[in-house]
């Protein structure tokens, strides 16, 4: 049995013809080798795409460096389809984590900022009133 090889990468990237796409989806349902390879490729691809986008070093564009432009990857509708296929065949969906959160209270935020803004000598409104309850003995 001939395995799909580089067709799998192209499939993940949506760089296949309609015939090739059908070939991949029909072949992969009963080929464990290609399922495993597709999962590996998917992982490598995701790893590369998870790399942080770096900002241009300041000054590189003579004053234009501070312009913030996200590194936009062109939308490709088939990515969702490909990812879904991978999920179905190799059970990737079980790995998708719920989005965890970090709790910070309002007091912590204010305290952090107001402690810092003491460095700012101008007591404009807001700096005059740290809206925080400090744990001071007997002050309540």
């Amino acid at each position: 049995m001939t395995h799909l090889g580089e067709l799998l990468s192209a499939y993940l990237d949506g760089e296949v013809t309609e015939d090739e796409r059908k070939l991949v989806t029909s072949h992969i349902t009963d080929c464990g080798t290609c399922q495993a390879e597709l999962a590996d490729l998917h992982l490598a691809r995701s790893a590369l795409r998870s790399l942080p986008v770096l900002d241009l070093p300041a000054g590189l564009l003579d004053g234009e460096a501070s312009v913030v432009i996200p590194l936009v990857r062109r939308p490709r509708v088939w990515i969702a389809a490909a990812a879904a296929t991978v999920a179905v065949f190799v059970g990737v969906a079980t790995f998708v984590a719920p989005e965890p959160t970090v709790p910070i209270t309002f007091n912590e935020i204010s305290l952090e900022h107001n402690n810092r803004s003491q460095l700012d000598p101008l007591l404009t409104p807001g700096k005059a009133v740290p809206p925080v309850s400090l744990p001071i003995g007997g002050a309540e």
Binding site: G5, E6, S9, A44
Partner: peptide, 16 residues
């Protein structure tokens, strides 16, 4: 290109 991307990803997967 297709071949390079495919082989590049496989090498990367092994390295990881």
């Amino acid at each position: 290109v297709r071949s390079r991307i495919h082989r590049g990803r496989k090498m990367l997967r092994e390295a990881l």
